[in-house]
Design a protein around this nucleic acid. Structure first.
Length: 429
RNA sequence: GUGACCGUAGCUCAGUCGGCAGAGCGCCGGGAUGUGGCCCCGGAGGUCGCGGGUUCGAGCCCCGUCGGUCACCCCA
């Protein structure tokens, strides 16, 4: 016998989002869409899975995400595919395939899949909101993208978060810096932690963001990339910093910041919540990837983007008591003890008129139907018993405010319900 | 992937020394044969995550496994 509980449980590291929590989720996506669409980013939908080679080439074989965390599978036609572990590669692939006009500014909301050991704020299927902007090399585009993320966080009420930025250089200056860093660290190889003593030669940048004391000490006075950028990269980075300052976006230079994907060039940035005590406090991050389109097989095209994690963002909102979204109340709940014809017809006419309405089913007692009306949160109950049915009226009973129950001719029910509604829509914040 | 802790009703949890599986909330029905909230009464709902072992007897002890949580790692 198979294990029944396991069979009806969501797979490890995945989760369901039920109403009313889903109302908040829905509102968050809508808020993000409105925010980035005002900056002329358009929604891009791409498949949840891609040829596995896209991720290998784009994100990089050396990255943990590609090397050990991808959900890879072969379909019935023998194709090697993978569920997407992040959002950028698919956007770049779609760009190369369709060649939309530049600048190409896209946003997305998608699930992302990584085979990791689950924890709070870390899931095998998580969800990201993000933007990508392809075409301009302009540092002002970096500023726009980072500002979009920062202002989005603030618009949902978050305040306790920090932005760190760094430059990863480009193909002109990175090799030289890597050599310098490798040479410097080689002399202190014995002082590094076990892992990085081995991996130093492959990726010396990784040593910089190692959290172990040994590596922290060995790298404390190591040459900083920002001091060894080539002229254009240095100029670019300076303008990014100046732009953020001009727009009032607080940030800090973090010379140890190294992102997990191999494709980043020049600007890299991360947002972390100070309200989340857990290790999973990164709520968003991104950077420039001026060589990625070319690597995927397209023309040389600079690009930059960010992704934010929906689950972590909501955890941060919880921690700051921000973005508390309640579902809108029903305008009316229909109670019918005469068999259901009235409930069917009155509910339909309310909904046709654009009102939010629900009703009881299964012919339950007056008492239990009214109880359901109360629990539904509806503003009024519309009650039809034998007396009302005989007289062609509906009893309108206020449920949220003091007021007398009154009888309304059936033809005037929609109008009567509307009259009781508040004039202004409730604020979403 | 490594290490540690935790799994009892839909939810939050209690369960003494190994001795008849419980409470609150929620849900359904009733008190009140036509009216919600507060109150009162009743009911449904459990392979004590799953499998094995020890024992006269296991929710409790042991092993395994699955899941969750925390740290590492990685990242959203």
């Amino acid at each position: 016998m198979p294990d029944p509980p396991a069979a009806v449980r969501a797979p490890a590291g995945t989760h369901d989002v039920l109403w009313p929590e889903s109302v908040r989720w829905e509102a968050l996506v809508a808020r993000f869409a409105g925010h980035v669409e005002r900056a002329d980013y358009g929604l891009l939908e791409t498949p949840m899975f891609e040829d596995v080679a896209l991720f290998r080439r784009g994100i990089g074989l050396a990255s943990d995400v590609v090397g050990k965390e991808m959900y890879e599978f072969e379909d019935r036609g023998g194709r090697s595919l993978a569920l997407r572990p992040e959002g950028t590669a698919s956007v770049v692939r779609a760009f190369v395939q369709h060649r939309p006009a530049l600048p190409f500014k896209a946003w997305y909301a998608t699930a992302a899949f990584r085979y990791e050991r689950p924890q709070a704020g870390r899931y095998r299927q998580h969800h990201q909101l993000g933007v990508e902007a392809l075409g301009p090399e302009d540092a002002d585009l970096d500023v726009e993208v980072i500002w979009l993320a920062d202002s989005f966080f603030r618009s949902i009420g978050l305040d306790r978060f920090a932005l760190r930025i760094n430059s990863m250089g480009d193909k002109v200056c990175r090799p030289g810096y890597l050599d310098l860093l490798r040479a410097t660290l080689s002399q202190r190889r014995d002082g590094l932690c076990d892992e990085h003593r081995e991996r130093l030669d492959a990726n010396p940048l990784r040593v910089l963001d190692c959290k172990r004391d040994a590596c922290r000490q060995a790298t404390s006075d190591v040459p900083r990339f920002v001091d060894h950028l080539c002229g254009p990269c240095a100029k670019h980075f300076d303008r990014v910093g100046a732009g953020l300052a001009a727009l009032g976006v607080p940030f800090a230079l973090d010379v140890r910041l190294v992102r997990g994907f191999d494709y980043y060039t020049r600007t890299a940035f991360e947002f972390s919540s100070e309200a989340l005590a857990a290790a999973q406090n990164g709520i968003g991050g991104g950077g420039r990837y001026d060589e990625l389109v070319e690597q995927v097989g397209g023309p040389v095209t600079p690009g930059i983007g960010f992704g934010v994690g929906v689950e972590r963002l909501l955890l941060a909102c919880d921690a700051e008591s921000a973005f508390e979204v309640a579902p809108p109340p029903l305008d009316a709940y229909v109670v019918d003890t005469t068999g259901g014809d009235w409930a069917r017809d009155v509910t339909a006419s309310l909904r046709r008129a654009g009102l939010r309405a629900d009703r009881a089913f299964d012919g339950r007692s007056m008492r239990s139907q009214i109880k359901s009306a109360d629990r539904s949160g509806a503003r009024v109950a519309l009650i039809v018993g034998p007396d009302e049915a005989g007289a062609g009226v509906v009893a309108l009973r206020p449920l949220r405010v003091d007021g007398e129950q009154r009888q309304v001719p059936v033809a005037e029910v929609v109008t009567a319900v509307r009259e009781g509604l508040p004039t202004d829509p409730p604020p979403t914040r």
